[in-house]
Every structure is written in structure tokens, then in C-alpha cells.
Design a protein around this nucleic acid. Structure first.
Length: 731
DNA sequence: GACAGTGAAATTTTT
DNA sequence: TTTCACTGTC
């Protein structure tokens, strides 16, 4: 495509952003304002018009989906963009650490521990810790890493001032280094550390990447900010894109402050705002704004609808979640029957657990659907087992993997024996370090430790351990003796067979009717894309650890999308149903007002995914942990102007002939009961009239001018019987 | 050390 | 409703 043509597809602000150069740039890009187009066009423009070497462009995103899409679109604009490095923060961190692992005491063949693995590791390091306490400690450790704080950082007190936490964090890090592995936090924190301490590495990487582009900057955490700082030298062009209203990962350490204070952190910053929205019709943007404007901590911007269309969002009050899923199914089926596509539709929910009802209903009605982002697959026992064998084959110091599989299926090797072996491996690690030990090949390998410990075990344990060693040896042999063209699928097939996992799970499938062998088969299919070699294995594991979305299925398939609101970030759909709009579900009941603001931003993100039609469903009751509980409509529904939405009540017995009626519920909303102009009588203040109303921290507040004195603000909800509404002619 | 049985808790959101 | 941690028995 010609550069001219490429640029003429942009509006003036977008063009400014693409052609800007010479100083740091902050693009404040509202939802649907074409920011991906700006970034990808910028990449192409830099390559063409400024002769920038594509390989020296680094573009970081937050999710794998976003990275894939960006890479594809950039390539479509200019083939050469294929050489640009377009990755998620974590995948960039892994890329960096593969090359510099030694500088941080890690093994370049490291695997990445997820939270569960971390809990296992910590509970082994500090055995007398209660399980749930371990989990909460791991959570705080990972939070500390989000802030780039090490065990000896003075500022660690921000996370937890208890010196015990410091000690445990230190112990955890030590154990993690002993395994040669990294956790998610390390993938950001360690590169920062290496770049800070090592001038040569810093110089080289700054030479390598002269252009750095960051997407979804509002969701970056402090460690990611520090990483950008470290990567950015005098000659680096840094451009970040983000939207403070879409910051939804604070719970995970994201720091909105990063985007708010960017101009102070990077001097001479140019700020460009993109407020033209090309995605949604006006009535959808209107309710999005009505909700998000209740937040205080925001820069504030107004989206301008560029697309024609006047269909108002539809709010449906339903009886319960069964009716909710039936309604969604029916709505979608009707639309498809009229000629629409399944893929036009997305069903959004707050928590993954809510997908179940929809899945059941859709299966029943044979509606094609795909569930995005549910991690269930890789959390399955059999999958974790197989992966642990793979991880152990790659890195024999991986103690978490060892504990998981050494006795699976049961070989008579209990916790005591396992701990003995791991202790021996640790001993050898330090012995090798001092040169007094058993030689380099013994530097912490648990497999080697097994051989050494064989003699000192009971006969039963000896038998089991010999069997285990045999398994590991034959796995390693399979890796070494690969035929050209063999894929990892062959390896996993062998693994399933020789480890006994196959026999074990086949038996369970027969007894319990489970699908475990089928899942292992699925894992094999995924592995078929990788060559049978150590490198292939490392790549496969990294891919799984960093991207669990199971996106192998053809995206072209025409199917309904079931997805959590968090996962919709960056996506759009012609028709969106936001389900479970009930107090306690969405927003979750939180006492902290700042968390409510985050929920509200999440609601904003959900609404602004819709292009043409938006539906909101709210149930009167819902089954929660086996009990049916009465529900009330979400606060966010109240924040929408009644005139901006169409409210429909649904008769569950007449699903096929939908009838519209004015639902009584809308009359009960506080903003309808207490609206400006309403006259009222208060026991203490006498007669008055409502001047204005608003929501503050989620509470409905009215401002009233009484006959005497200054206007007063209060919450009708807490006035009880001392406050009465009176008719217009009463005073 | 394996495993069945019991009781209790628990439910965000993701790289 | 499901999952998980813990206990007691073999």
C-alpha cells in the first residue's frame, strides 16, 4: 500500500500521532478511536519514510491476542514489519532472559512457574506454613515484584511491613533460583535488575531497539514502567498509547499513575488525544459515558460517535440465570435466522464461572460458541502432570515438577523420600559452588540426586525410584535420538505411555467417565507444531506458560463468543450482551470506593465493545454456591439515564412471542423516585425541593433547597421515614 | 505410605 | 455445588 493512501485513511489527530517524532509521545486513545491502526501505521511509516530497520522496532502489548493482531496488521501494511519484535511484556521478558539468564542466576532453559507452582515451592521452603497463608504470601510476593521490589528493598514495607514477610520473600527467591526457574514477576523484575546493573547489556539493547511502542499503557505496573525506563536511552523513541478509563488491572499491580504522570517522567512529552470513536453508535457511547463519568480519578474525555445509528441499548429484567441463558440463546438464534452471523455476538460476564450456564444452554440448542480465555485446560490434573514431566526433562532442577510427578502414578515414594532427594540436590548445588563437591554435572540436578540416594532408601522406595529414573532416562534418550521431522507429539505420546500416566488415566476414564485421555490427546495435537528437540520443548513450554488461551481453533469459525469482560479488552463485536448486571456480581460488593471505580471502568470497557447493539441482562435471583439468592439490579444500571435505554421485561413462559411492557422495576430506582424538581418534606428541615442528584462513591445523593437555609446534601436511603415525597401542589 | 471419608470453606479479574 | 484440606484406618 502506498504511504499516501495509508495516511489518508487516518483523521488529523491520528496522522499527527503517526508522523510525530523527536520527543516522547503519549497518545490518549479513547475506546474505539483506532489506536491499533495508529500503532501499526506508525510501524509501517517508520520503516518506509524514515528507513528504520524493522528489527530495531519493539512493540509491547499486554495480551497475546493483542500482540498477534498487531503483528498481523503491521505486516499487512508492510511486509517488512514481520521482522519487528512485537510481543507481550512477559514474552519480551522471557526473550530477554533466555539470552541473559546467567546474569540472574537462572538457567537459559528455565520454565516459568505459575501461581500454583509458586505456592508449592514456598510450602516446601517453609513447611510449617498453613496452606492458605502460603497462598496469600505468594500473592504478596508477586505484588512486590509488580512494584519491582526485592527482598532487601527498603520500600518493601509498602507491600507488607512485617520483617517476617521480608524473610520469607528472600527464602522464596533463593529457592526459586535453586530450581533455575522464573515466575511471572521475575520476567519483568529481573530484566530491570540486569539492565540496571550491567552497562554492557544496557548499551547493547539500547542499540538494538531504537523505537519502542507500548499499547494499553494504562495497565502497565511499576516494574513494567521501570523496564521501559531501562530500555529507553538518549536515542530511543518512546511512544505509549493508553486510556485511563480502561485501566482494569489495578488488582494485579497496574498503576494508573504511570499514564497520568508520563509527561513528568519523560520530559518534553507530546500528548495527542484521540476522541473520535469509529466503533459504536451514539446511544451506546452515551450510556458508556453516563456510567464512567461517575468516576473521580480520571483525565476526562468525551467520545464522539462517527458511525450513524440510533438503536438504544436494551435492558432486560429476567427471573433467574436459566432464563438469562435461554433468553440470550433465543435472541441470538432469532437474529441468525434473520440472516446474521453467530460471530456477530458476544456474551460478556464478570467471572469465568458464569460461562457454565451459557455453555450448557448453547450446547443444548446446538449454537456454535467458543469460550475465550478460560484457563481450565492447562489447570487439569493430567495436563499439569504431562507438562511437569516435560519441564523436568528440560530442567532437572525443577523441584516443583519433580514433586508433582515422581510418585505419579503411585510408586511408593512419599513426601519424606521426596524431601530427602530434593535436599540432596540442594546440597550438591552448593557443594559444586565451592568446588568441594561432586563435579559440575551434579550442580543441583534432582535426577542425579535420585541416583545417589538410591542406596539409602527402603527396598520399596528403591524399586519405585529405579522405575522413575528409568522413565526419565528414556525420555532424555527420546530427545537425543530424534529423527528429523519428528514432532513433540511423538514425544508426548511416548511420555504418556512410558510414565504410566496413560494406564492410570485410562482406568480413571473408565471408572469416572472422565475425558482425561482425550485432553492428553489434545495436548499432543498442540505439541505437533513443535520439533522434537530440547529447543522445541523449551519453546512449547514457554508458549503454554505465557499464553494459555488455547487460541488454536480457527478464528474464522462462525461462532458466538463467551468471554469475561476483562478478556474483551481490545476486541469489538457488532452485538454484545452484558450479563449478570446485578449488585454483588457486577460490581462485586466492595467497600473500597477506589475498587468500585475500577469495576466501573470495567463496565465502561464492556459497553464500548459493542458496535451496533448492546443488551444488558439483570436477574431477580441467582444460584450461588448451591443456594438461590435474591438479586438486585447493578448500580451501573441505575447510573444510566432512563431515557437512554429501552427497558424490557420478559415473560419466561412466552419466550417465542416476546412482549414489551413497562417493567415496574424501573420505577423503583432512586434516581426516578428522587429526581430534580421533586418536592419533599423532611421531619427536621421542613418542605424543600430537589435541585440536583448524583452518585458519589456509589451512593445516590440529592441536593435539596429547603424553605430556610443553605442547600443540603444527603442520601435518601438513610433518611428512612423522616423524609417524604410530597405532591407538587402541597406547598 | 496409600487412600477413603469427613467436614468445612469458597468463589474475581490474568501474564 | 464443588473443591480442598485434614483425619483416621489399613
Amino acid at each position: 500500500m502506498m504511504t499516501e493512501k495509508m495516511l489518508s485513511a487516518l483523521n488529523p489527530e491520528q496522522r499527527d500521532a503517526v508522523c510525530h517524532e523527536g520527543s516522547p509521545l503519549l497518545i490518549l486513545a479513547g475506546a474505539g478511536s483506532g489506536k491499533t491502526r495508529v500503532i501499526t501505521t506508525k510501524i509501517a511509516w517508520l520503516i518506509r519514510e524514515r528507513s528504520v530497520d524493522p528489527a530495531s522496532i519493539l512493540a509491547v502489548t499486554f495480551t497475546n491476542k493483542a500482540a498477534r493482531e498487531m503483528a498481523e496488521r503491521a505486516k499487512a501494511l508492510d511486509e517488512r514489519a514481520a521482522s519487528a519484535v512485537i510481543r507481550t511484556f512477559h514474552s519480551f521478558g522471557a526473550w530477554f532472559m533466555r539470552r541473559n539468564a546467567a546474569l540472574a542466576d537462572a538457567d537459559s532453559g528455565f520454565t516459568i512457574y505459575d501461581d500454583t507452582d509458586s505456592v508449592t515451592l514456598l510450602s516446601k521452603a517453609v513447611p510449617d506454613l498453613a496452606r492458605n497463608r502460603t497462598a496469600s504470601l505468594v500473592h504478596r510476593i508477586s505484588r512486590a515484584k509488580d512494584y519491582c521490589l526485592e527482598p532487601d528493598s527498603p520500600k518493601l514495607d509498602i507491600i507488607d511491613p512485617d520483617p517476617e514477610f521480608r524473610r520469607i520473600y528472600g527464602l522464596y527467591q533463593q529457592r526459586l533460583r535453586e530450581t533455575g526457574n522464573l515466575d511471572f514477576g521475575d520476567l519483568i523484575m529481573l530484566p530491570v535488575k540486569i539492565l540496571r546493573e550491567n552497562e554492557e547489556v544496557r548499551r547493547r539493547i539500547r542499540q538494538r531497539f531504537t523505537v519502542i511502542l507500548v499499547d494499553e499503557y494504562q495497565d502497565s505496573n511499576v516494574a513494567q514502567f521501570e523496564l521501559l525506563r531501562a530500555l529507553t536511552g538518549e536515542n530511543t523513541y518512546l511512544c505509549v498509547v493508553g486510556d485511563d478509563d480502561q485501566s482494569i488491572y489495578r488488582f494485579r499491580g497496574a498503576e494508573v499513575q504511570n499514564i497520568l504522570s508520563y509527561p513528568e517522567q519523560f520530559l518534553n512529552t507530546t500528548v495527542i488525544r484521540l476522541e473520535r470513536n469509529y466503533r459504536s453508535v451514539k446511544p451506546i457511547l452515551a450510556v458508556a459515558d453516563q456510567v464512567v463519568r461517575n468516576n473521580k480519578g480520571r483525565l476526562g474525555k468525551t467520545l464522539l460517535a462517527q458511525r450513524p445509528g440510533e438503536k438504544k441499548p436494551v435492558l432486560l429484567f429476567l427471573h433467574d440465570q436459566d432464563e438469562e441463558s435461554a433468553f440470550c440463546a433465543q435472541l441470538i438464534q432469532d437474529a441468525v435466522q434473520k440472516g446474521g452471523h453467530w460471530a456477530d455476538w458476544a456474551v460478556l460476564y464478570r467471572t469465568n464461572a458464569q460461562s457454565l450456564g451459557f455453555e450448557t444452554e448453547f450446547l443444548h440448542r446446538q449454537i456454535p460458541y467458543r469460550v475465550v480465555g478460560s484457563l481450565k485446560f492447562y489447570e487439569r490434573e493430567e495436563i499439569k502432570d504431562a507438562l511437569a514431566f516435560l519441564a523436568l526433562a528440560v530442567n532437572p532442577r525443577n523441584s516443583v515438577a519433580f514433586h508433582r510427578v515422581v510418585n505419579k502414578p503411585a510408586r511408593g515414594l512419599g513426601a519424606v523420600t521426596q524431601d530427602k532427594i530434593v535436599e540432596e540436590a540442594r546440597r550438591s548445588l552448593y557443594a559444586a559452588g565451592t568446588g568441594a563437591g561432586d563435579g559440575a554435572e551434579n550442580s543441583g540436578s534432582i535426577i542425579d540426586a535420585c541416583s545417589r540416594m538410591l542406596g539409602s532408601l527402603s527396598t520399596k522406595a528403591q524399586g519405585g525410584l529405579t522405575e522413575f529414573l528409568h522413565i526419565m532416562a528414556s525420555l532424555n534418550a527420546a530427545l537425543e535420538n530424534a529423527e528429523p521431522g519428528d514432532t513433540l507429539a511423538v514425544f508426548i505420546e511416548k511420555l504418556i505411555d512410558c510414565t504410566g500416566l496413560g494406564e492410570y488415566y485410562r482406568a480413571e476414564d473408565e471408572i469416572a467417565g472422565s475425558q482425561r485421555m482425550a485432553n492428553l490427546q489434545e495436548l499432543m495435537n498442540g505439541a505437533a507444531l513443535y520439533p522434537l528437540s530440547r529447543e522445541g520443548l523449551v519453546q512449547f513450554l514457554e508458549h503454554i506458560e505465557l499464553d494459555r488461551s488455547m487460541e488454536q481453533q480457527e478464528e474464522s469459525a462462525d461462532s458466538v463468543t463467551l468471554i469475561t469482560i476483562h478478556n474483551t479488552k481490545g476486541l469489538e463485536f457488532p452485538r454484545v450482551i452484558m450479563t449478570g448486571m446485578e449488585a454483588g456480581i457486577f460490581p462485586r460488593d466492595d467497600k473500597d470506593p477506589s475498587e468500585l471505580e475500577e469495576e466501573r471502568r470495567l463496565c465502561y470497557v464492556g459497553i464500548t465493545r459493542a458496535k451496533d447493539e448492546l443488551y444488558l441482562t439483570s436477574c431477580a435471583s441467582r444460584r450461588l454456591y448451591g443456594k438461590t439468592a435474591p438479586m438486585r439490579p447493578s448500580l451501573f444500571l441505575e447510573e444510566m439515564e432512563p431515557a437512554s435505554i429501552e427497558v424490557i421485561g420478559m415473560d419466561p413462559w412466552k419466550m417465542r412471542s416476546r412482549q414489551h411492557r413497562d417493567d415496574g422495576l424501573s420505577g423503583q430506582r432512586p434516581r426516578d423516585l428522587w429526581s430534580p424538581g421533586q418536592k419533599l418534606f423532611h421531619d427536621d428541615y421542613g418542605y424543600g425541593i430537589i435541585q440536583k442528584t448524583c452518585y458519589t462513591d456509589g451512593e445516590f445523593v440529592v441536593t435539596v433547597q429547603f424553605e430556610y437555609g443553605e442547600p443540603r446534601r444527603f442520601m435518601p436511603k438513610y433518611q428512612g421515614h423522616s423524609l417524604l415525597r410530597v405532591k407538587d401542589d402541597e406547598f
